[in-house]
Design a protein around this nucleic acid. Structure first.
Length: 514
RNA sequence: GCGGAAGUAGCUCAAUUGGUAGAGCUCCAGCCUUCCAAGCUGGAGGUUGCGGGUUCGAGACCCGUCUUCCGCUCCA
């Protein structure tokens, strides 16, 4: 394939829309930026991915249980987690360099520069005088006092402006201080805008300040606030994990690349509670375990790599991503973070409740450390599609479009075709459909030539096609065709159920994890 | 948010200097039927992303707006 990567990506997006995988949200109203809906096949694939993750996490680990916390949480949750502060940035753009800065950082840097000047004055003076008293010098030297007044003035104004949420004043400070863009050197600034990455709404009928609540920007906090409930009612012993899947919401400044970065997205995460001091070995354990899980999907182990974080978030003492080779390059698919006891300690402080675990082996109580694995379901979905979407050249110059989805995850497991629409073949096909339908998502198709029907199923990723022909009437056998190899086997109708069970079972994936 | 490109049927795309919106595939009904998509007949599907403007007349020109893609930027 000599296609450009961006064309390839565009084709995937088109394919998703054409075959009922993903539609732009509210498309008849021109869509909503960075919001997408899953269609009839997309919903199935997404559900299957979620189920495989859940089985691998909860069903396969006796010390991991799952919960389903609400999207709405007490507002103090987000103060404790640090999101209220960390997700609130006043931003400003320089119109000439097109660079964006945090307004507070610009002002702080400006203040730091003035402080440097003071320090230089002090240094100079120190060289001139013996028995130099720096404090005395600072409080008496006119030039230093002038600088110090400036700093105090700026800080006071800035503090007031932030408290009053007065963004115009923040800009005025930047203008008054004659702060220039480090790149362009110009003072051609846009207005200051507040970017709050959390969506907010109000609870109750009266929209008052006190009723402001947020749509959760991550699902993790729902686990942290429930960890003792689960530990006590489930009689969990450390180390143990709590898993959860659910929607989270972030008001991204720029949300792009199809379903890779959406404003509403679904996370699948597991918080693993461990004894302090053992967190690094569990961090390594989950790094390995999660990569193994991804590899079990069979998309190609070369498509994954680790990316260790050098700059760590405020809550973490180690962090890495599992990246996937998307059509637009290696990008984060899953994060594995050693979150320490930061979150639980914060919640202890803000709630005033003890969140300690009594360790019977040690005979003492402590706040556990947490190792987190968090994968984006939508990104996972995209990884499956990017690796599975193929435009395959065939003999005779033809190409076929095929979605090579892992069979256990495919929306439709099997399609049943009567070779022709007469001689009792449709009736026999119907009978097979009714039998297989009890266990699997199957469909029947009798329109158009059989070759065309194969191609239709290839395009939606159906792994198997069963064709009922004239021989079927005589000896009760049918052909079963494999999507990827296009090879056919003749098998007994009576064996179909068993054959299909084996090919598309969860076991076919889960066995790779053992 | 900035810059570039684009938006016409479900999909891929046409439509001369502004002059009747079209094709192929798809879809539906029927005929035929030979195991890897393009056999025959008929049919459905469009306020050309949306809103203004210029014009006798706009898919095309102008303004605004929305969405998407690419590059910057951002990503606790």
């Amino acid at each position: 394939m000599s296609q450009k990567p961006e064309d390839f990506f565009k084709n995937i997006i088109s394919h998703c829309k054409e075959y009922g995988y993903i539609f732009p949200s509210s498309e008849i109203y021109d869509g909503l930026s960075a919001v997408y809906d899953y269609g009839q096949y997309g919903a199935e694939l997404k559900k299957n991915l979620r189920e495989y993750w859940w089985k691998a996490m909860v069903q396969m680990h006796e010390n991991i249980v799952g919960i389903d916390a609400a999207i709405f949480m007490h507002p103090t949750t987000w103060k404790a987690s640090g999101h209220v502060d960390a997700f609130n940035d006043p931003l400003i753009d320089n119109k000439d360099s097109k660079k964006r800065y945090r307004a507070d950082v610009l002002i702080e840097e400006h203040v730091a520069k003035i402080e440097d000047k003071i320090n230089k004055e002090v240094e100079k003076a120190a060289k001139r005088f013996e028995n130099f008293d720096a404090a005395m010098f600072k409080s008496t030297n006119a030039r230093v006092k002038e600088y110090q007044d400036k700093i105090d003035n700026i800080n006071t104004r800035f503090k007031t402006a932030l408290n009053e949420n007065n963004l115009a004043e923040v800009k005025q400070i930047i203008v008054d201080c004659e702060i220039v863009c480090p790149i362009s050197g110009s003072r051609n600034w846009t207005d200051v805008r507040q970017f709050n990455l959390m969506f907010s709404t109000s609870m109750g009928s009266v929209a008052e300040e006190g009723n402001l609540i947020y749509l959760r920007p991550e699902t993790a906090q729902g686990i942290f606030v429930n960890y003792l409930n689960v530990q006590k009612t489930g009689r969990m012993k450390i180390p143990f994990g709590i898993a959860q899947t659910g929607k989270a919401f972030r008001n991204e400044i720029v949300a792009r690349q199809f379903i890779f970065r959406m404003r509403e997205f679904e996370q699948m995460e597991m918080q693993f509670f461990v004894k302090p001091g053992t967190e690094m070995q569990w961090y390594e354990y989950w790094k390995t375990a999660r990569l193994k899980w991804h590899n079990s999907l069979g998309l190609g182990n070369d498509n994954y790599r680790y990316h260790d974080h050098l700059k760590l978030a405020h809550y973490a003492n180690a962090a890495c991503d599992i990246e996937f080779k998307f059509p637009f390059g290696f990008k984060e698919l899953e994060g594995i973070h050693s979150r320490t006891d930061f979150d639980l300690k914060q919640h202890e402080q803000y709630s005033g409740k003890k969140l300690q675990y009594f360790d019977p082996e040690e005979n003492k109580s402590y706040v556990p450390y947490v190792v987190e694995t968090s994968v984006g379901l939508d990104r996972l979905f995209l990884s499956i599609l990017s690796a599975g979407y193929k435009e395959e050249p065939l003999e005779g110059g033809d190409t076929r479009t095929v979605l090579s989805l892992p069979p256990a995850l495919a929306p439709i497991k099997c399609a049943i075709f009567p070779l022709v629409k007469k001689d009792g073949l449709p009736e026999l096909a119907e009978k097979i459909v009714k039998e297989l339908r009890m266990d699997h998502n199957v469909i029947m198709d009798e329109k158009d030539t059989v070759g065309k029907r194969y191609r239709r199923q290839d395009a939606i990723g159906t792994p198997y096609c069963i064709t009922v022909d004239h021989q079927s009437l005589e000896d009760q056998t049918v052909t079963i065709r494999d999507r990827d190899t296009m090879k056919q086997d003749r098998v007994k109708i009576a064996d179909l159920s068993k054959i299909l069970d084996e090919k598309v079972s969860w076991k076919s994936l889960l066995k790779h994890l053992a």
